[in-house]
């Protein structure tokens, strides 16, 4: 059918309840094939100089329109997934969660990786970590956290001291030092009332 597979591709992305559904290689492939078939048809018609009468002209227009539509669909599909991968960098740091890694292609993985690199370069040039501070700072300079998994040693207090993160231990850390680790799921903020 004409350009309907592509619509299916986008609907799949829209309908999903998952953060990022599995990359639909076969459907993408079908859309690419369909687009190329239309391109061949169009090419063939031009070669046979079938563009004199009105019917042929209309046919050419429609073919061209279908090709453009499919291209637009493929672009949207890949851009939308790319956007989600970018959001992930801001939400959980540069490591891709396992359940998501299963759903993405090699290309997408390197896209994510390169994005992290570009962002890192920018932040290094500013000497500021922009992924910190998603919420306005509270009055507490220090917060109490529980360590959820063994993580090894980290530098705190601007590199002045080192602390070992061992599973199940409780620590009193600076909010800035703890924030990104909380988002990565290494630490849990203990909120006492």
């Amino acid at each position: 059918m004409n350009t309907e597979i592509g619509v299916e591709l986008l609907k799949e992305l829209q309908r999903t309840t998952e953060q990022l559904p599995k990359y639909d290689q076969s459907l993408v492939q079908k859309v690419i094939e369909e687009t190329n078939r239309k391109q061949e048809q169009l090419h063939e018609m031009v070669k046979q100089k079938k563009y004199e009468d009105t019917i042929s002209k209309t046919k050419l227009h429609i073919l061209n329109y279908m090709i453009e539509r499919n291209e637009q669909i493929l672009t949207s599909y890949h851009l939308e997934r790319g956007k989600k991968l970018i959001e992930m960098r801001w939400d959980f740091g540069s490591v891709i969660p396992n359940q998501i890694r299963e759903n993405i292609t090699q290309n997408e993985e390197s896209f994510h990786h390169e994005y992290c690199q570009i962002l890192e370069d920018y932040m290094n040039s500013l000497d500021l970590d922009l992924t910190q501070d998603h919420q306005p700072p509270s009055n507490d300079l220090y917060i109490e956290v529980r360590v959820l998994k063994d993580y090894g040693q980290i530098f705190i207090d601007g590199g002045q001291s080192i602390v070992e993160l061992k599973k199940n231990s409780r620590l009193f850390l600076r909010r800035v030092d703890a924030e990104n680790l909380i988002r990565e799921g290494v630490l849990e903020h203990i909120i006492s009332n």
Partner: peptide
């Protein structure tokens, strides 16, 4: 610095689309 970022970012997007499907299209 922002301008350097956007140049790299734009190239990243273009390359990603190219590797994902543009290179497989006849046109």
């Amino acid at each position: 610095k922002e301008f350097q970022f956007v140049q790299k970012f734009h190239n990243l997007i273009i390359n990603h689309l190219d590797e994902s499907f543009l290179s497989k299209l006849k046109r």
